[in-house]
């Protein structure tokens, strides 16, 4: 039987343990993935994960169902992560705007065409690590949009709701995130192409 969100919500609000276990089964991997990508360590990601569900548990009776439960949960998780990152003992060094032109736009500087490297060059663990690291290195405001929209598969609207942004702002940030990532990844793939003798 497929349960609707409204049915699950009702069960959660009556403190049904099975419902809470279902809710954790469904959402905890996604909340953890978000936390891991936002935080600087696995321990911090775990703290954010626990805080998120503890907060959801406390707040579930005031949840009105105007967004999806998952979207609401991502919002709690994002806020928990940001609170934690801004603690005085947390590392607060930001690369915010280091790649920006004067007006805040990112102008592409990496202009080697590595897109047509053989597929096998992209299918290594090293590339997976590079991709994850490039996301971690994004400025926070672009990172959160990119993770929710591209990696967690939310719609633009859901992403905007989770992060308390307009849809227009979410679209602009997504685009800037992609440009940043392209810029960050290009030197690595350019090296791979040159070492492999694949000159575009």
């Amino acid at each position: 039987m497929i349960e609707t969100e409204a049915e699950l919500l009702t069960r959660l609000q009556t403190n049904d343990k099975v419902a809470w276990a279902d809710f954790l089964d469904l959402h905890s991997p996604h909340v953890y993935a978000l936390a891991l990508r936002l935080m600087k360590s696995e321990a911090d990601a775990e703290d954010v994960l626990q805080e998120t569900f503890a907060s959801a548990y406390k707040a579930i009776n005031s949840f009105e169902g105007r967004s999806k439960l998952g979207t609401w949960l991502y919002r709690i998780a994002y806020n928990a992560a940001m609170m934690r990152l801004r603690r005085p003992d947390a590392e607060t060094v930001s690369i915010e705007d280091t790649m920006m032109a004067e007006d805040g736009r990112l102008i592409p500087k990496q202009l080697f065409d590595w897109c047509c490297l053989p597929e096998k060059e992209f299918e290594t663990d090293e590339v997976t690590d590079k991709l994850e690291q490039a996301v971690r290195d994004l400025p926070d405001k672009y990172k959160s949009v990119f993770i929710l929209r591209e990696l967690e598969g939310l719609s633009t609207r859901e992403t905007a709701v989770a992060l308390n942004l307009t849809e227009g702002a979410a679209k602009v940030r997504l685009h800037r995130a992609r440009l940043h990532l392209r810029e960050q990844l290009s030197p690595y793939f350019t090296d791979l192409a040159e070492q492999g003798g694949y000159n575009a």
């Binding site: 202009l111 065409d113 590595w114 897109c115 047509c116 590339v127 991709l131 992609r178 990844l185 793939f189």
Partner: peptide
Amino acid sequence: VVVDTLNKTILL
């Protein structure tokens, strides 16, 4: 180049 590599970035 920007379009090709941006597209590839998205796909990766």
